[in-house]
Structure formats: C-alpha cells, structure tokens
C-alpha cells in the first residue's frame, strides 16, 4: 500500500505515492534521480547520505521518505547554482578536501548545517562536530581546513 508524500526538494514541490518502507535516501536517489546523496552503510554510521531536512543535517538512510512529508529537503544538487559553487564547495576544491569524492556530499551537508547554525567554529572543536561522517581517503585535515575557510568567509 502506497502513501502520499508531499515534500519540497531543493526548492521544488514534489508529490509522489511511495511505499511506507521506502527510505528517504532511496526516494531521493531512485525516484527523483538525485544520485548525489550516496549510501555508504545504510545503518546510520558513515554519514555519506547526510542531507538537510528543514536545515538540519540528517541521515537520509535512517529516515523513511514519508517522514519528510510536509518538510523541506536540501541535497548536494541544491547547493550552488549552475556556474556558481557555494563558498563551501569552492573551499573543498581548493583544499583538496576529497579524493574519491564519495563522502563529499555528506560532508557538504554537515558543513552547510554547521555554517548556517551561526556557531563559532574552531580548529579544536570542529573535528568532534564532524565525527558523524567518515572519510577513508583524506585523513580529514583538508576537510577541516575547507570548512574553517568557508566559515571565515561568511
């Protein structure tokens, strides 16, 4: 049995019938073809699927699509515009904050939520705030640098 879902995704109103067991991540990836949200573990540890739900960083693999009903989702595809990257995306490029790039959309979502929170980000604290996202390539240092730079430019 399917349920109706109305959700705003990257600024666009979307209405779909979905099975209740469909995760938000699979809804975004398979139904809307927004494949920038990646799945690294599907059990809420790696953070690759992190998206913004009403501005908060959440794990799209642990939410059902129907739980997003009436809410607003921002994925990596909703960050920046054609021909213009966000300051955070630019900082990721400049600092080499990724190698394979698989974890990047999740870090961008976590980073964006931190930047929007308005809290002061320090080099000492930031790594703890990023402990919900795994990266296997970079050793994290360049990611920390990129987020700090984007925070400084705001």
């Amino acid at each position: 049995m399917e349920q109706s879902l109305r959700v705003k995704v990257n600024g666009q109103a979307v209405k779909r019938e979905v099975p209740p067991r469909l995760t938000l991540a699979d809804f975004l990836r398979d139904r809307l073809r927004l494949t920038g949200t990646h799945l690294g573990c599907e059990h809420g540890v790696c953070g690759a699927c992190t998206v913004l739900l009403d501005g908060d960083a959440v794990r799209a693999c642990l939410l059902l699509a129907v739980q997003a009903d009436g809410r607003e989702v921002t994925t990596v595809e909703g960050m920046g515009e054609p021909g213009r990257l966000t300051p955070l995306q630019r900082a990721f490029l400049e600092h080499g904050a990724f190698q394979c790039g698989f974890c990047t959309p999740g870090f961008l979502a976590t980073g964006e939520a931190l930047l929007r929170s308005g809290r002061r980000l320090s080099r000492a604290e930031l790594p703890d705030l990023l402990a919900g996202n795994l990266c296997r390539c970079t050793g994290y240092g360049p990611i920390v640098d990129a987020i700090l730079e984007a925070a400084g430019s705001r």
Partner: peptide, 17 residues
C-alpha cells in the same frame, strides 16, 4: 571532473541509470 564531485554529479556505479 573534480567540480562534478562537489556537485554530486560523480556518476559512481550505483548512480548509473
């Protein structure tokens, strides 16, 4: 190629249609 990765347009295996 790198810019595509920060835009979520990486085309990893599971992203291929």
């Amino acid at each position: 190629a790198e810019e595509r990765l920060v835009r979520g347009q990486g085309d990893f295996l599971a992203d291929l249609d």
